[in-house]
Amino acid sequence: MTTTTGQVSFDPDPLAPGERFEAWHHAVSTAFVPLDASTEQPSQFHGSLTGLALGSLSVAGVGGDAVTVRRSRQAIAAGDPGVFKFALQVQGSSLTRQDGREAILSPGDLVIYDTRRPYDLVFDGAYRMFVVQIAVEHLGLSAEQARDVVAQRIPGSAGLGALTSSLLGSLDDQLQKGEMAPDPRAASAVLQLVQATLLSRFRPAADVPTRDVVYLEAVKHIDDRLGDPGLGVEAVARALHVSMRYLQGVFAQEGTTPSEWIRRRRLERCRLELGDPAHAHRSVSAVAARWGYPEASSFSRAFKNAYGVSPGAFRRQIVGG
């Protein structure tokens, strides 16, 4: 397992096949909490792990072949940092057992479990999970509420579950690509959204996503749809189920507007593609259309205003031709 500033990763490739399962087991127990693990064919097991300290939280993407992971009383005695794990099933399926309950997860579903008490995680095939570790004192639930919510499937298809699933899935993608920064504000937004999702199990009508959560989800929604010429403030607000005024207020706190953010991100994507030799065969107008500028003339004006040079001249400066 390698460690850089705030980040840990496990790469099984340099190891002999017979050593990989125990090395993965050690890496997981080190990154999370002491755990027991078993698999039917340890000599053929292949697993992965990437983790990052994210402000007051830590996050990790973990995956592998079929395996059973147990948090036994002996393992708790060996190390009990007092944390909850809030997990997103990214790929495959799993079974979580704790306190006499069972939660069966499919991709997109969520679950929380308490490392201070025994639990089992059963993966019957290849899988990947994104796990957020939250200190007990930061979770924001009473002891009774926490006991009531562990090992319960939280569907990722509707309501706050859908928003949480989407945000954590995006963070997992960034973690895999090495693009996640240890931004304390991101940690705050994740924690607030997790809290709201869990509290909605008790008070469904009382929870509204915070401004930080709305901002992060709006940024993700915009990036995913930059190529849509119809993308605008109204469309983003409608997708996030907030008012246009509220959305504009969220972006105003960041010193910008939703429209300006969309314009800037589109231009950044166009600039990156125009400067990439791999896309030299694509015309300037085709690049512009791909990122939401159907009219070449308006794109050319916007690009020159932003970068002081026309798109064609910029491409010639970078890639020649």
Rank of each mutant, 00 (worst) to 15 (best):
T3N: 09
V8P: 01
D13V: 08
D13T: 14
G18L: 13
V28Q: 00
F32T: 06
P34Y: 08
P34E: 01
L35R: 02
D36G: 11
A37S: 12
T39Q: 01
P42A: 07
H46G: 10
T50W: 13
L57D: 00
S58T: 07
R70W: 07
I76F: 05
G79N: 08
G82N: 00
G82A: 04
G82M: 08
F86V: 10
L88C: 05
Q89S: 09
Q91L: 09
G100S: 04
G108F: 08
T115Q: 02
R117M: 04
P118K: 02
V122F: 09
V136Q: 12
L139C: 07
G140P: 09
S142Y: 13
R147F: 14
D148K: 08
Q152Y: 15
G156N: 06
A162K: 13
A162D: 06
S166V: 09
L167R: 01
L168E: 03
G169D: 05
L171Q: 03
L175D: 00
Q176F: 13
K177G: 11
S188T: 14
S188A: 15
V190K: 00
Q192S: 14
Q192E: 15
A196Q: 08
L198G: 09
R203D: 15
D207P: 08
R211I: 14
D212M: 03
D212N: 06
V213N: 05
Y215Q: 05
E217I: 13
A218F: 04
H221D: 07
D223K: 04
D224G: 02
D224H: 08
G227V: 03
G232V: 07
G232P: 10
V236R: 00
A237P: 15
R238Y: 10
M244I: 11
M244V: 12
L247C: 06
G249T: 06
A252N: 11
G255L: 12
T256Y: 06
P258C: 07
S259T: 13
E260Q: 06
W261F: 15
W261Q: 01
R263C: 12
R265V: 14
L267M: 01
C270L: 10
L272I: 09
L272F: 14
P277Y: 14
S285M: 12
V287G: 05
A288P: 03
R290I: 06
G292E: 01
Y293D: 00
P294H: 09
E295F: 15
F299Q: 00
F299V: 03
A306Q: 11
A306H: 08
Y307G: 01
G308F: 11
A313F: 10
